[in-house]
Design a protein around this nucleic acid. Structure first.
Length: 560
DNA sequence: CACGGGTGCGCG
DNA sequence: AAAGCGCGCACCCGTG
């Protein structure tokens, strides 16, 4: 059963019950304040809630203590179906841009008065104003049912929507985070917290030292041009001021400069200001954006949650009597490529724990580091350097896997789209890309035109090459989390999210579950079982394994 | 003063 | 331009 929620009229909410054929079973209207009670009462029937946008609907339910098991996020689903090659001939995909193609509403509050961004050619109306949730849902079902692979798309939309629920729940629960430990770390490295407008003493000292050594009393080391000039005056030959480049040099300024760069980065990205802005009541609540990346990976807005430096992970600590289960998928992307291509030789190499060791054992390359750099090169499109040199050996050992990424690259170079395992397709290249390509094939094109076009075509080919792997890996990760969430609900002692084990962090191929200590072992088993299930969902019986490491720890810093 | 491109660096 | 993919964010600096 589905329950479609619609807010198209003023403040009232309509709830329309549908059976599996889409027949309307009931239609009622309620005030917004009554929705949590309604949802709580209906949830035991395990409906799939259909709503415009999870971030607009679900936080209020969570705040009222109501979780839902399943939903359809129409906005996220719409975006997938509009672009997918599998549903390209549907009415939904062929329609001109409409209200559901507007930039997604990212406000926290239910969309009472959300304002569209008027930088588009067309001015799309608000979702729900002109096309109701029910009509959109109907159009989406038609698009899926009439697609070339309904099963895959159904799974993708379910996984994407489950991800939206999880993102809202993770934000609601928050990542357990010790402001005290974070502050202690900052104080240890930078000195005591300075008053607003001044620099920590350690940075002040380092700047003094750098200025002395370079004899540049007014140097601002945060200014790349300024720093570059000062380094050149000191006789250092550099083409940039990047740390990795400076590290190669030998000069008394290098050590304090690198220390300055590291510490000032810590201060500006995760200093006291970040602590004040993002940590409340022992929780970090980042704003996750499911589907925020073209490949289907999540993004975040503010707080830099997906760039939490290793340096500060010691501040992520379980509550008393609780544990963190920190899990990551080992060599996820190469294993995804294995499944995508059905490469049995690579599947054999990946049997067991470490795929790269397996590649060494297969005889293709002679050490683990080479296996890793070669695989990354294959998936990212490296042509030169060590990775480029290793490619022929990799191609000989794993022809099917390499052929898959090569074909994706060629398609991109031709301006075609590519599609992930479950049906997410890459965007088409933009108008300037097409203009450059056609300029190069015109009658009076110059060598420069052709060079530019070729280089740009290769750039796009590297994008599509990586897209098939990254997007499919993102799908695997969504299925993993959705399966894990299901298993965690089964372990939970109550309906309340924070009474039982629950997801608190997600980082592409890594999750953290916060769990009562007594359930930590079962949680770790659930993590592993969910990974195996995700592999079956994507690749059926093909024997590619997805091992995960699951560490039971008190602090994130203790994992791995 | 706001904005946007460039640089640099954190994560996968 | 680190050898290649995908991001977010802080800061500088030139432009309007």
């Amino acid at each position: 059963m589905h329950i479609v929620l619609d807010r198209s009229g003023a403040s009232a909410i309509r709830a329309i019950r549908l059976d599996d054929d889409g027949t309307i079973l009931g239609d009622e209207t309620m005030e917004r304040a009554d929705l949590p009670a309604f949802a709580r009462a209906a949830e035991p029937e395990a409906p799939r809630w259909v709503w415009s946008d999870t971030r607009a609907w679900y936080p209020a339910l969570l705040a009222a203590g109501v979780r839902v098991e399943r939903c359809v996020d129409l906005q996220l689903s719409h975006t997938i179906l509009r672009l997918s090659a599998l549903s390209a001939s549907s009415t939904l995909a062929l329609a001109p841009p409409g209200p559901w193609d507007a930039a997604p509403d990212i406000s926290e509050e239910p969309a009472v008065s959300h304002v569209a961004l008027f930088d588009l050619d067309e001015e799309p109306a608000e979702p729900g104003e002109t096309i109701s949730a029910l009509d959109e849902f109907t159009a989406q079902r038609e698009a899926v049912d009439g697609s070339t692979s309904p099963g895959r798309l159904r799974l993708l939309l379910a996984a994407e929507s489950a991800g939206a629920l999880i993102a809202a729940e993770m934000r609601s629960a928050g990542l357990p985070y010790s402001a005290e430990r974070h502050d202690a770390l900052l104080t240890e490295l930078l000195g005591p917290r300075p008053r607003p407008g001044s620099r920590p003493v350690v940075l002040e000292q380092l700047i003094g030292e750098i200025r002395d050594v370079l004899e540049s009393p007014s140097l601002n080391p945060d200014s790349a041009p300024d720093l570059m000039r000062a380094l050149q005056r000191a006789g250092l030959i550099v083409t940039s001021t990047r740390s990795w480049e400076l590290r190669k040099l030998e000069h008394p300024v290098i050590d304090p400069l690198l220390r300055y760069k590291k510490l000032s980065r810590l201060l500006s990205a995760n200093g006291w200001g970040w602590l004040d802005a993002w940590i409340r009541d022992g929780r970090f609540r980042p704003d996750y954006v499911p589907g925020g990346v073209v490949t289907g990976r999540w993004a975040t807005r503010g707080g830099g949650a997906l760039q939490l430096p290793r340096q500060v992970r010691g501040a992520v600590v379980a509550d008393d009597g609780w544990k963190l289960v920190v899990a990551d998928a080992a060599q996820l992307e190469p294993r995804i490529l294995t499944g995508l291509s059905g490469d049995t030789a690579m599947a054999a190499a990946g049997r067991g724990k470490d795929l790269y060791e397996g590649i060494v054992a297969s005889g293709a390359v002679d050490e683990r580091a080479h296996a890793k750099v070669a695989m990354l090169g294959a998936m990212y499109g490296a042509t030169t350097g060590e990775s480029g040199r290793l490619m022929p050996r990799l191609t000989r050992a794993f022809p099917r896997a390499i052929r898959l990424v090569e074909e994706a690259a060629r398609a991109g170079e031709r301006g075609e789209i590519v599609t992930s395992r479950l049906g997410r397709s890459s965007p088409r290249p933009g108008s300037s890309w097409l203009a450059t390509q056609s300029a190069a094939s015109g009658a009076e094109s110059t060598d420069a035109d052709e060079r530019r076009a070729r280089s740009q075509a290769r750039d796009w080919g590297r994008f599509t090459r990586n897209f098939v792997v990254q997007a499919s890996a993102a799908e695997w990760a969504l299925c993993w989390m959705a399966e894990l969430r299901k298993r965690l609900v089964a372990l939970a002692p109550s309906d309340r999210l924070e009474d039982g084990p629950h997801l608190v962090y997600f980082l592409h191929d890594e999750v953290i579950v916060h769990t009562p200590a007594g359930l930590a072992e079962q949680t770790a088993e659930a993590v592993t079982a969910a990974a195996a299930e995700a592999g079956r969902l994507l690749f059926g019986g093909f024997p590619v394994e997805f091992p995960v490491t699951a560490a039971i720890v008190d602090s994130y810093a203790h994992a791995k």
